[in-house]
């Protein structure tokens, strides 16, 4: 867009611009009797009357020609609860489920129906289920055919051991944080054995759910 700039006498402009406040200019030129006053900000170049009219006209044209009724779409972000892994496990295992899965995890074979019934009865007979589970796990750990990796397997590749243990007991991969914590814990505690780690997984709350 071409803007025609009318020449304003330097005297008419310069005299008052240096003061700030109101700039007096002539349009049409003073000799034709036109005198206008517009406010200006000190340091901002003054513009002429035609320029203002043109700008107002252009703005109005753009404004009114651009007016178009549209749907009022509002875009937002949904709240999402971030939960740790395993949060989807909401169903608690029954005593029978717990025992049969525990037996399969520790012995890599299925528990017979008779043994399953008997062990479930034992759990039922003890009020504090944490104690019942601890005692049953520690009994299993005393059996000669329990399948637990050797200590050297864990020490040689703790990362793989931790991943395998999560997969075996919790049926998921560990997060980076979980893996790091366990590796650090294994490295920092020489008393920690695969048996104790298996014990802790079998006793964990997550293991009680599926």
């Amino acid at each position: 867009m071409k803007i025609t700039r009318y020449k304003i006498s330097p005297l008419e402009r310069g005299a008052e611009r240096s003061e700030g406040g109101v700039c007096t200019f002539s349009f049409p030129p003073a000799k034709y009797g036109g005198i206008k006053k517009i406010p200006f900000i000190k340091g901002v170049p003054a513009i002429g009357g035609w320029e203002i009219l043109l700008l107002v006209f252009s703005f109005s044209l753009l404004t009114f020609s651009a007016c178009k009724k549209t749907d009022d779409n509002t875009y937002d972000v949904n709240n999402v609860n971030l939960l740790p892994p395993g949060a989807g496990k909401t169903k608690q295992k029954s005593n029978e489920q717990y025992v049969s899965i525990l037996y399969a995890n520790l012995f890599q074979q299925a528990l017979s129906a008779n043994k399953l019934f008997d062990i479930s009865q034992c759990i039922e007979s003890i009020g504090d289920k944490d104690i019942a589970r601890e005692v049953i796990i520690s009994n299993f750990m005393n059996k000669p055919d329990v399948l637990i990796p050797a200590d050297s397997v864990m020490q040689n590749n703790p990362e793989q051991f931790v991943t395998d243990t999560y997969n075996r007991f919790l049926v998921r991969n560990p997060t980076v944080a979980e893996k790091t914590w366990f590796i650090n814990y294994i490295n920092a505690n020489p008393n920690v054995t695969p048996e104790l780690i298996y014990f802790s997984f079998a006793l964990s709350n997550e293991y009680m759910y599926y």
Binding site: P84, P85, Q92, S200, E206
Partner: peptide
């Protein structure tokens, strides 16, 4: 003691929508 420490770490990492396990 280390066994319980590991168990508590696992328990702290676990959160679900259930009411939690009964505990005497």
């Amino acid at each position: 003691s280390p066994m319980y420490q590991m168990k508590y770490f696992l328990d702290n990492s676990f959160e679900n929508a259930s009411n939690g396990l009964p505990n005497l």
